[in-house]
Amino acid sequence: MALKQLNIFVENKKGALVEITETLASNEINIRALSIADTEEFGILRLIVNDTELASKVLSEKNYLIKTTEVVGVKIGDAPGKLSTALAVLDKEDINVEYLYAFMARTEKHAYVVLRVADNSQAEKALEDAGYHMITDPDIDKL
């Protein structure tokens, strides 16, 4: 059900992001969404891409530290208040969101939210019960 997210450990130094994105580009990998968590010393780059396995392989070959985790992807409307309504569903169930980021659809009037929670299936169930649609890896190319 869940969505695969690629996590890359990035040291805070010049050119690090260029090398990563160039590596993905030269392998025809499309980045659909990204977020960076950064501290003074390092950052964690999180990516949703169209081919997680290939991305993981080509970056590992360049000695990057890679980890794939499963996150929740949910489709929401592209209008004011839609995100807070979705988050309220989780809040009601006492589900804590560790981090989230969002991306837009290419055509439809929709946005997609990527959520990192402790228990994916619990969050998915709460959202589905409230009428939301989840997105999974096969959807990524079509969105």
């Binding site: 450990f9 968590a37 501290t39 390092f42 999180r46 530290l65 890679i66 980890k67 985790t69």
Partner: peptide, 15 residues
């Protein structure tokens, strides 16, 4: 130097 086993997707995990 970190290894793949220690790496996690959250800053709080690494710290």
């Amino acid at each position: 130097e970190m290894t793949a086993e220690q790496f996690t997707d959250t800053v709080s995990g690494v710290t």
